[in-house]
Amino acid sequence: MSDQYSSALDNAYRRAIRFYEARKGLPARAPATFGQLLEAFGGPMTDAGIAPATVIERLADAAEPGLTGTAGPHFFAWVMGASHPVGVAADWLTSMWGQNGAGYHSCPANAAAEVVASKWLLELLHLPPECSLGFTTGGTMSHFTCLAAARGELLRRQGWDVEADGLFGAPEITVCVGADAHVSVFSALRYLGLGQRRVVVIHTDSEGRMNADELGRAVATVSAPLLVIAQAGQINTGAFDPLNTIADLTHARQGWLHVDGALGLWARACPSRAHLAEGAERADSWTTDGHKWLQSPYDCGYAIVRDARAHRRAMTVQASYLPVTGEEVRDPKEWVPELSRRARGFATWALLCAFGKDGISAMVERHCQLAERMSS
């Protein structure tokens, strides 16, 4: 590597460490205005280019006034992770390795890391070991992936191949969702052609929990394929839907139960909090985020599906230029929508190694105790 690129990498490392050490004092809101940021990044594009090390310095100088304190101790606005240094280090390696994580043949190492990390995640969250798991960008794409599997399987049971024939003329799927469902759920339904306004919205209580009695009345009239979307950890209150009752109602109608567990599914990793998500293991699919309680860098979500065949049918892609793999290896593109993507397995694997089961459990418990203290 030439000296100029080594200097650029050294500058990036130095500025990153300086930011990490300073972030505990950062304000929650970025100090610069949008106009100031445009001015800092602006100016004409050069003809000859600028030295790499200088570019990195200019980037950091321009960006830092527009960075928020989301990973610092003064930020309480949203549910955020902190980009743990171990995950960041793994992410740096991932970027430098420059691998396309979509296929086995394009990066066998990522495929192997995803297999092992998937197994560990299922153990940690006490979910059925036969589940398949896709590494996504975050909650929205995790919902998209899981609900695509649900759509395909529910229609397959009706004799309809949605992957081949689309939705024109397909049996209608009834979707029941709580009124306090996260916006990403509605986005995924819209992307999948299931509609944002055609769903049956079930009322919730003051904490955002779905009313199971109302759901029971709604599904009692359903003769079409049924998809129910429940929530483990309402984004504003942390409340959990009555998952066991919802599972009973859904499966009595041969429906598919999907659980949005972006934050709350991690309660299952903590023995003292696991009761909150009791019944979640009975669902047919789940989503959760690594960039929340696992503290991974962003671009890290998990789509988990009990029926691996339905998952693969919904996501797999074939082309003449894409090598075919056998059952003995994992082909990551069979479990998520993207082809060109970063190798997401490495950061998750590294963080699970670094924390261990006890470390994650202790972190969840500590955060819950802090929340209880703040609310009292």
Score class of each variant (00 low, 15 high):
M1Q: 11
D3N: 11
S6Y: 10
S6Q: 14
R18S: 14
F19A: 15
Y20N: 08
A22G: 06
K24S: 09
G25D: 11
A28D: 07
A30I: 01
A30P: 01
P31N: 11
G35S: 15
G43D: 03
A48K: 13
R58H: 06
A60M: 08
A60L: 06
A63L: 14
A63Y: 09
G66Y: 04
G69K: 10
G72L: 05
H74M: 00
F75S: 09
F75V: 05
A77V: 11
A77H: 11
A77R: 15
M80K: 10
G81D: 06
V86Y: 03
A90Y: 03
A90N: 11
D91G: 14
D91W: 01
S95C: 13
M96Q: 05
W97T: 12
G98Q: 08
G101C: 05
G103M: 04
G103W: 01
Y104I: 00
Y104P: 00
H105E: 11
S106W: 00
S106R: 07
N110Q: 08
N110H: 05
A112S: 14
A112N: 02
S118L: 03
L122P: 09
L125K: 07
L127C: 09
P128F: 12
P128W: 13
E130R: 05
T136C: 11
G138D: 05
G138W: 01
S142T: 13
A148D: 09
D161E: 14
L167K: 00
L167M: 10
F168I: 15
G169Q: 07
T174K: 15
C176G: 08
C176Y: 03
A181G: 15
H182Y: 06
H182V: 04
V185G: 10
F186N: 07
F186W: 05
Y191T: 06
Y191W: 06
G193W: 02
G193N: 08
G195N: 09
T204I: 09
T204Q: 07
S206D: 15
L215T: 04
G216K: 11
R217P: 14
A218T: 11
V222G: 07
V222D: 08
A224H: 12
P225I: 09
I229M: 05
A232G: 01
Q234F: 03
N236P: 00
T237I: 02
F240K: 07
F240Q: 02
N244V: 11
L249R: 11
L249C: 08
L249G: 04
W256C: 12
H258E: 05
L263E: 02
L265F: 06
W266L: 02
A267F: 00
S272Q: 13
S272R: 04
S272H: 00
R273F: 02
A277N: 08
R282S: 12
S285R: 09
S285N: 07
T287L: 15
H291K: 02
L294G: 12
Q295E: 10
S296Y: 03
G301F: 01
A303M: 14
D307M: 10
R309N: 13
A310Q: 14
H311N: 10
R312H: 10
A314E: 07
M315S: 06
V317W: 06
Q318D: 08
A319H: 11
Y321R: 12
E327F: 00
E327Y: 03
E328V: 08
V329C: 10
K333T: 12
K333R: 15
W335V: 04
E338K: 14
S340M: 14
R342G: 12
A343C: 01
F346S: 08
W349P: 01
W349S: 15
K357I: 04
G359N: 12
A362Y: 00
C368N: 05
Q369R: 12
M374V: 05
S376V: 09
